[in-house]
Nucleic acid binder design. Structure first.
Lengths: 237, 237
DNA sequence: GAGTGGTCTAGACCACAGC
DNA sequence: CTGTGGTCTAGACCACTCG
């Protein structure tokens, strides 16, 4: 049985999407909603808070609760998990995504990797490079470093399917990411695997992915072909 | 007088930063905190929820409340407003930022602009191009479209200083943004103003900035030199 | 079973906006 | 002044984890 406030939030969401609550006027006030759903006002407020963080509605003290004018636009992009992971997710609806392992090594981290992953110089890391293909066409080349102690037993098979699926089976949960996006000139590896000219720009994403408790899970450089879409960033205040 | 739960949240934050609550063990439980702060447990939970959304702590049912291992790292980057606006803010600490107006026109929107700004074909828009300079060096070239009815009275002087400062004086508040980041080859305008070669990649940010109620305020294409840093993206679950 | 966070109630008073 | 959302109380029971 889901929490009552989540059930109510879903019901209100349905009504907004079906335009039962017109975007032009405020929602019924919290007292009315509490009466209708046979619950207390606090519970209604929890449901409303839920919809606020989802970007669906906003409140104005002294005025009421309103539907965001752009929630439908945003909801097209703000899919849960759509850019949590290797950003591959963004393309899955466009065709078949596959991976090809270019390198899979074990070594010790350099200084940059130590500080990014919050580990010591003697903590071994996996170092692997994968080529991501969409319908067989090269899409991105990712170089990843992960601490061995967090993900014991990682093998080439996991790299070819989904590393994050394996990570989940270990009971680890992703919390978020820190990324820097740049445009760069392609190096030799990129020209070779992404099949691009020296004059073709490359989109570089340098990222650290964190677990729920803030432990860094991976530090990676992802290089994307310039002609295969971009990175979507949604930022709600 | 600030709300009690915010006062408590600030106090707990202080204790975490000063290491009074060691990162190795859980915080005091909610009942103990309620007793210490002479308040109800609900209020403590509000304070805790506040610190969760700030990315400082996390909770585990049946276990306790814990400090995130990376909150200090993230707090270096997750500065409020650091990438809300034209991303110029990111560089302000590096030197003097100035703007040079390349174009400032009035016209009707095309189809893409109509759908991005949620306006009709007969709603006039400003169309301006600005070159952003850091310490006199070209940094980015931004092409912006804004509905006239939202920002009446915009003039060249505002473009040279800060459009967002003017927007704020009109009582409008920014809610968030929707962006797509790509790597592209420079066009003629970019090569001319950003002083780059045809083979130099350019970082393109296509963005829509929204007001509090979801009304689109601006639709812009921002082009950055590849050798002047990147876009930082922080993503908490 | 004991201890933790998660949810919920039925009220109360305060702060803000609009008439 | 009225109506709205914002905060707060003092309890209650439930769900989960661990010894």
């Amino acid at each position: 049985m889901a929490a009552k406030y989540l059930t109510i939030a879903r019901e209100i969401k349905k009504r907004i999407i079906s335009q039962r609550y017109p975007a032009s006027s405020p929602l019924p006030d919290q007292f009315a909603l509490a009466a209708e759903f046979q619950t207390s006002r606090m519970t209604i407020q929890q449901a409303i808070r839920q919809l606020i963080v989802e970007g669906l509605i906003y409140t104005r003290q002294g005025q009421g609760t309103f539907v965001r004018k752009n929630f439908l636009q945003l909801s097209q992009w703000d899919l849960p998990g759509s850019d949590y992971f290797g950003a591959t997710k963004t393309w899955e609806h466009l065709g078949t995504v596959s991976s090809q392992v270019v390198r899979f090594d074990l070594r010790f981290p350099n200084e940059k990797e130590q500080s990014s992953l919050l580990i010591n110089a003697d903590a071994p890391v996996y170092d692997f490079v994968r080529l991501r293909l969409l319908n067989g066409e090269p899409m991105s080349l990712d170089a990843t470093v992960m601490p061995v102690n967090l993900v014991p037993g990682l093998n080439k098979g996991h790299l070819e399917s989904s590393v994050f699926q394996y990570v989940e089976t270990l009971g680890l949960k992703i919390m978020g990411s820190y990324r820097v996006v740049r445009a760069i000139k392609p190096g030799e590896l990129e020209q070779q695997h992404l099949i691009c000219e020296a004059g073709d720009p490359v989109l570089e994403v340098e990222q650290v992915i964190y677990l729920e408790d803030g432990t860094p899970l991976e530090y990676a450089h992802c290089h994307y072909r310039y002609d295969h879409g971009g990175i979507v960033i949604v930022n709600n205040g």
